[in-house]
Design a protein around this nucleic acid. Structure first.
Lengths: 146, 146
DNA sequence: ATGATATTGAGAACTGTTTGCAATAAGGTC
DNA sequence: GACCTTATTGCAAACAGTTCTCAATATCAT
């Protein structure tokens, strides 16, 4: 079973293996949803994913999308973001942590990282007697007319 | 009108004047809600405020609480926070900006400020070609057993 | 006191999400 | 491949938080 030398057919195949090993059944809805979040670049919400999924199998339900997102979140496959005034949006968890800048005009999301901010957060929490479990840094702004 | 020397009778009275001058009617529900957010220390949600209000006037409705919170937010009297997985929570806007650390066990909110983080945020947004309209920094953590 | 109209209360409507349940279908076993 | 156990699905109803509709009421200028 453990065959690290074999070239991964695709990320999606890796994922299905991982999920199967975790005891989950790889159902048709799940395959479809996995392929969607693998291809989809941005930060789609449940409805976006549902609409894509329906194209591939008309009988998939929104409830299944939500259930699958929950499962994938628990498994660390995706991350859920609750930006202001809107539905939760999802993003493939590709290792690296990052924060978000949301364009308040278009809803577009720009990702960024800052070691220094991270460090300062730790410092602050520490000073207050807390250890950070997770955090959320969102900048809401509009594009400058340069 | 501008009379900075006169001792303010109370914050609430100042506020009602301000709102009246802005063209709003100072109704009983509004008076009650104002007094609640003036006294209430923490970060109550709409239901908390509603429950307090009902004690003073049993016929106040939750809808009115929501409407009033919206009004007060628009007027800059309060700030609305949407912490993870829960209803919006409100806080009197007392000038100074601050961020929040939320105790994931108790829901308690600790406020903090960091000039340095603020500065870094500006720097990042600037580099990305954006100007920050507002932002949100929330640390979710648990108390350290010192 | 009176009138114009902003505001209210009550409940329906709405959005986003979760859940109960019977029907379906994975995937291990023979 | 057929069979069986049980995880998973689809559907609809339930749910939480919030907003809206609309007739009734109350505020404030006159």
């Amino acid at each position: 079973m453990t065959d690290p030398a074999s070239p991964a057919a695709s990320d999606t195949d890796d994922l299905t293996d991982r999920l199967r090993k975790a005891g989950f059944r790889i159902t048709r809805p799940r395959q479809i949803i996995l392929s969607i979040i693998a291809s989809q670049a941005g930060h789609p919400d449940a409805r976006d994913i549902f609409q894509e999924a329906v194209k591939q199998d008309a009988r998939i339900s929104l409830a299944t999308v939500y259930r699958t997102m929950k499962l994938l979140e628990d498994e660390g496959v995706i991350q859920r973001h609750a930006f202001e005034g809107g539905p939760a949006r999802f993003e493939a968890a590709e290792g690296d942590h990052h924060d978000h800048l949301i364009d308040i005009e278009t809803g577009a999301v720009v990702e960024f990282t800052s070691e220094r901010i991270e460090a300062l957060q730790e410092e602050i929490a520490d000073r207050l007697g807390y250890e950070i479990v997770h955090h959320r840094l969102e900048l809401y702004g509009r594009r400058k007319n340069t």
